[in-house]
Write a protein that binds this DNA or RNA. Structure first.
Lengths: 223, 223
DNA sequence: CGTATGAATATCTTCGACAATTGACAACCA
DNA sequence: TGGTTGTCAATTGTCGAAGATATTCATACG
């Protein structure tokens, strides 16, 4: 175990990847012992990991009943995306003018990793790289709290993002959009970039609306 | 222990009141065993409580080093208050038109409780009532995620709010401001109310700036 | 005199076991 | 038959102790 690596962080990682991989689906119950078995840890760090994911909004907790993967309604997704639309432009306007060559290089690297993962169908890697890409354009000194809020909004919808990243077409579209964004960032075209991101989000939301509607139909009829 | 009351919730409550009471001051280390002794619990639930407060931003965590009460710089407070200035008007615009008589009655009750606590110098009660008052004007269906973010911003600065609520003058000023806000809310004067709250926040920020500067001077000289 | 070394201590981290609670199911009664 | 009650298995919640890590302080060295 590397430095800073703790049993807790392992448990968190395990849970995240289980959610992203779809092993833990929205609405499903998460049983502590199962996670403990799966990770090879005892329940103590697992409980703390569950608590972390709960605070991030990915899990819901009912005392003495346990944890459940958060199931979002379409209205929730719309609210979350609207909040992102409010906050992310603020972050980008502050951060983009301050990016230096190194920062841009990191962002480009993230975009490349994203493209690579998209081709391989490595959903969880693509999600991580995608996140680095977007946050790379928003990170600036003096807005750590703003980024904390934005990160929380991203966390809340991680399971759903994983859902639509399973469509190859969407992965390709995301890669193309990233290219354009990177270009705008390098040109310093802030407002243009913000526009693109808004469109990016809208597209994602549209897709999610469809997926959730389909899911609801299945729940309503099929069972 | 009542239903839903768990050792964790006791530990959380203990920590909150210790922070609000000033027993745990910004920058100070929080030792798990001490909390366990203080609450009469074992460390397991205490650790989970610490994790909760960490996610709220009230504590900071360094693996294998422990927890520290978050120490905010003036810049942090300014950022947090700016974020509140961005988000709270959104919540109020959506919520205020939907408030019914019952809601207003609850808000009025919170204001009264606030005034009462202000006279008695019951800082922790006043903080709780103050929170109910303000959130009562923002709570509306369909914006639970927005409120979650706002709550997080409030949590992050709870220790500092406790700091300036120890000044009787400020407590009085807050009570008066609440009266005016309540009046505006009852008249449905949304924009007016938003203005008042902005001023309310500005005043708090101004005060905090002074307090922190004084604190820094003490740390620089006195020791 | 300042710095590096190394025990000793304090603290965090994890574990395994036990107690408490919940939900499901079957037995029972009207 | 319909509803209630009691029992049981599964799960969560808590504890106390042992193991791992960081910090401190005394000591020796350059």
């Amino acid at each position: 175990m590397g430095p800073g690596e703790t049993a807790l962080s392992q448990a968190v990682a395990w849970l995240r990847s289980a959610i992203v991989a779809g092993d833990l689906r929205p609405g499903q119950r998460v049983i502590q012992d199962r996670v403990a078995e799966g990770t090879g840890l005892s329940v103590a760090p697992v409980r703390e990991a569950l608590r972390v994911l709960e605070q991030e909004g990915q899990l819901q907790y009912i005392p003495r009943r346990g944890y459940f993967v958060t199931k979002l309604e379409i209205a929730d997704l719309e609210e979350i995306y609207a909040l992102r639309a409010t906050l992310e432009p603020i972050a980008i306007r502050a951060a983009l003018p301050q990016l230096d060559e190194d920062d841009l290089a990191r962002i480009r690297a993230a975009a490349d990793e994203c493209a690579e993962a998209a081709m391989d169908g490595a959903v969880s890697q693509e999600l991580a790289a995608n996140r680095s890409f977007h946050f790379g354009m928003m990170e600036a000194p003096g807005q750590s709290h703003l980024l904390r809020l934005i990160a929380m909004l991203w966390d809340s919808t991680e399971a759903y993002r994983a859902l639509y990243y399973n469509f190859p077409d969407e992965r390709q579209a995301a890669v193309l959009a990233h290219e354009a964004m990177l270009d705008a960032a390098e040109r310093g075209a802030v407002e243009e970039l913000i526009e693109m991101q808004a469109a990016h989000r809208e597209r994602a939301l549209l897709l999610l609306r469809g997926l959730l509607a389909a899911g609801d139909r299945m729940n309503g009829d099929g069972k």
